[in-house]
Design a protein around this nucleic acid. Structure first.
Lengths: 296, 296
DNA sequence: ACCTTGGATCAGATTACCTGATCCATGATA
DNA sequence: TATCATGGATCAGGTAATCTGATCCAAGGT
């Protein structure tokens, strides 16, 4: 098992070797030359070999020193580079967001945030398991669909907008599959997102409709895909009023039962963050911007 | 300019990451878990990112930790490996010796030393510039041809044998180039070693012979090559009685003027060493063995 | 012969580090 | 469900490693 020499002595030696003198190294390390001299001597004693030849003007490497130096220079540079990258990543704003919210709501607006705050580099991770994954370590903020506002005391929450759902389909689908009454949904193709798979169940809990099997229909990996399938006329999706606003305004999706929009029971979209980071400038600024977007 | 985090903290983190826990790391580093905890915390503060996720049983790496760990593991291993090699080389006995002495005297005897002291690994460097190169840093002992026994006070010297020189040639050369009297050397092909080029001059200073031009003849990179050229009948070499003993005993070289053997003025072969290492076991043992070989 | 440069060295000050005790959260055990 | 075991966090206090700053010394340059 190879043993590691004293690391600070290695660093002093490496600096001295690079500067070809102890004074240069001392300046770089913000210590006196005596300290560098001591470190080098310690390392030489540890290894049992002289690493420098001392002459009147500076020092020069011995064979042993010449072998050791490049290893140290490269290793230290590699460590410093990686540590720097990690530290600078920590300055970025890391956000995690579920797929549909990410692709249909956040991403289209994010350029606006970047324009307003070019100094903050936003790094968005789109993943379904936001709420369970969110522990404040990897991510500064997380989007989540919550109906219980209670969480661990160190997690702060900021509500954005309610989840308001209603069945939606393309005008073409509506023409070929008459949906005059809610009961007609029993014959319709229901479109689901698989990970939650509760959208239809939740809505039917609010608006009980006899004869509709909430398990029937097609499954999609996320709500965005299900919605796009609905636009293409594949069936009826349980559409979120906010996330599907573009399609509803453009008329590519229509609501057969516009009066039957479920409200808060299904929960609301909110932002999660660690309580101790909640007021960091980068977090604060993003929270304010998101709140503004959600209101507008 | 990337900045290097505290190195001891990096080492503690690396060990903790490898052991997936602070206790294992603490044992490896021979400290308490509190110390490891402190180091890791320090590093996390330095980088501004958590490196571990703490749970009840041990810890697991965060994204940042997962990026940092392999860099450290590899770098430290590389440093430890090289440092170990350098340290173990320091245990070897490093000797520097001029070419002719090396090839004609030391090397043939060295197996005998290895047999007697298999625990000492001898590393022989054959190089002309022994005496100037020898500073006790790269080499533990150096062979040198000295005529002035005074050196720096920190250099110890041990005489081995005198340099005793006399012209020598092959029997065939002698037959075709009669060398009845020293003056006949004026017509002979003199064989020189180039780096010193003083062998004939020195000998002629002891035995002045009218008409002989010490610059005339052929040059060889070292005395061994010149001697082998003489054996092949190329001319007359200034042969060392010790280094050419084999050829003289076998009769492949003969001395036209056996009574004209120069003595101590040309100096003697000796061993050089740093005074402070002079009595190290490995040095002592080698010195004794060389003295024995020189006497025998 | 003088001065400048650059490393070696030492006593004393300072800092970083380690210890060892205690606390706390979690998951296993009964 | 209470208890225990495990493993990390934390803190005050002591110790050891490290740094400072003065001084010394050797080697080149002028």
């Amino acid at each position: 098992m190879p043993k590691l020499p004293p690391l600070n002595a290695l660093r002093a030696f490496e600096a001295a070797a690079r500067h070809e003198g102890f004074i240069g190294a001392a300046e770089e390390l913000h210590v006196t030359r005596g300290a560098v001299s001591r470190h080098v001597k310690l390392l030489e004693e540890h290894l049992g070999v002289p690493l420098f030849r001392r002459h009147a003007q500076g020092v020069s490497l011995t064979e042993a020193g010449r072998r050791l130096m490049p290893v140290l220079t490269e290793s230290f540079a590699r460590i410093a580079r990686e540590a720097d990258r990690i530290a600078s990543d920590a300055l970025d704003l890391h956000i995690i967001c579920p797929p549909a919210t990410s692709i249909r709501w956040l991403l289209p607006r994010l350029d606006g945030f970047r324009d307003r705050h070019p100094e903050i580099r936003v790094r968005l991770t789109t993943d379904f398991h936001c709420d369970t994954k969110f522990d404040g370590l990897e991510y500064d903020l997380g989007f989540s669909i919550e109906n219980q506002p209670t969480r661990a005391p160190n997690i702060a929450v900021q509500g954005l907008f309610d989840v308001r759902m209603s069945p939606a389909c393309s005008p073409a689908y509506l023409a070929s599959h008459p949906l005059a009454r809610p009961e007609d949904l029993a014959q319709a193709d229901l479109l689901h997102e698989t990970p939650r798979h509760g959208d239809w169940t939740d809505w039917l809990a609010t608006f009980p409709v006899a004869g509709v099997d909430p398990a029937q229909g097609h499954d999609f990996a996320n709500l965005d895909l299900a919605t796009r399938a609905a636009v293409m006329g594949a069936g009826v999706v349980m559409a979120d009023m906010v996330l599907c606003r573009d399609e509803l305004e453009a008329g590519t999706l229509v609501l057969p039962f516009p009066e039957m929009v479920s409200g808060s029971p299904l929960g609301g979209i909110c932002l999660l963050g660690m309580a101790d980071k909640w007021e960091l400038p980068k977090v604060r600024v993003f929270r304010d911007w998101v709140a503004e977007q959600a209101a507008g």
